[in-house]
Computed example of a mutant assay.
Amino acid sequence: MTATPGFARQAQYRTMFRVLGVVVLVAGVVMFGYGITSVFGSGFDGPSGFQIACFLGGVLVVGFGLMLLQWGFLGAAARYGAGETMPVVKGSAAYLSDGEGILGVGRTAGPYCSKCGVRNDADARFCDSCGSALA
């Protein structure tokens, strides 16, 4: 029996990153909201050090929360990206290869035209580019 790739408790880590990411993100938004309203609404005497720390620290806490969320959803994002790009990569590789494989949905690679050199479908009798008869 083969072991699954990844960490032993990978699902728990993902869930932990997602939950912590949301909690830290909400705390950072609240902290930044307090900091921005107190810094820009402090009047002529200027903001205190705590208000400036909330303003600047809130940005850092929001960034850390977003990073935790990214770690929690990294596998889902990678699977989505692979599902979107892999059919295009397969079609491109088949088009550039020696003709074995699928060019697109339902199209298999056929012969090259002897006059213009364009590859045609397997069931084509005439060239798609110049119209000459294929052997």
Rank of each mutant, 00 (worst) to 15 (best):
D45M: 14
V88Q: 02
V26S: 02
F44Q: 14
V26I: 13
V24K: 13
G58F: 07
G58N: 06
E100R: 10
T37F: 07
W71G: 07
V22C: 12
G57R: 02
E84T: 11
A94M: 01
T15I: 12
A27L: 06
Q51K: 08
R18E: 15
V39M: 01
I52D: 04
S48G: 15
R14T: 05
F40W: 11
V30A: 15
F40H: 07
Y13P: 04
F7R: 15
L25D: 08
P47N: 05
V30D: 05
S42Y: 01
G104L: 10
Y34V: 15
E84Y: 07
G83K: 07
A11G: 15
G35H: 00
V39E: 01
V30Q: 12
G110F: 00
A82H: 05
A53N: 11
Y80H: 11
V26L: 13
G33V: 04
G21H: 08
L74A: 10
V61F: 03
S48H: 02
T37E: 05
A8V: 15
Y95A: 14
S38D: 11
G99A: 10
S42R: 00
G28E: 11
I52W: 10
Q12R: 08
L103C: 09
G75V: 03
A94P: 02
Y95P: 01
G21S: 09
M16V: 15
V89T: 07
G6P: 12
V61Y: 04
M86R: 08
V19M: 09
L69I: 09
L20Y: 09
A8S: 13
P111N: 14
S97Y: 06
V24I: 12
R79W: 01
T37L: 11
V26F: 09
M86Y: 02
I36W: 00
G41N: 00
R14E: 15
F64P: 00
G65F: 00
F32H: 14
V19A: 10
S38T: 15
G101C: 05
G28V: 06
R9L: 13
L74H: 04
G110P: 07
T85W: 03
S48A: 11
A82G: 09
F50C: 08
F32Q: 13
D45P: 02
G6Y: 06
S92Y: 02
E84G: 03
M67H: 06
G99W: 06
G65N: 02
P87W: 03
I52S: 14
F40Y: 12
V29N: 04
V89F: 02
L25N: 09
L25F: 11
K90W: 00
G28A: 08
I102F: 05
Q51F: 13
A82N: 06
G81F: 05
G83R: 04
Y34T: 14
L60N: 13
L74P: 00
G43Y: 07
G43L: 06
G57T: 08
F7W: 14
M86Q: 07
D45A: 11
M31S: 14
E100Q: 10
G91D: 00
I36Y: 00
Q12I: 14
G21I: 13
F7N: 15
T85C: 03
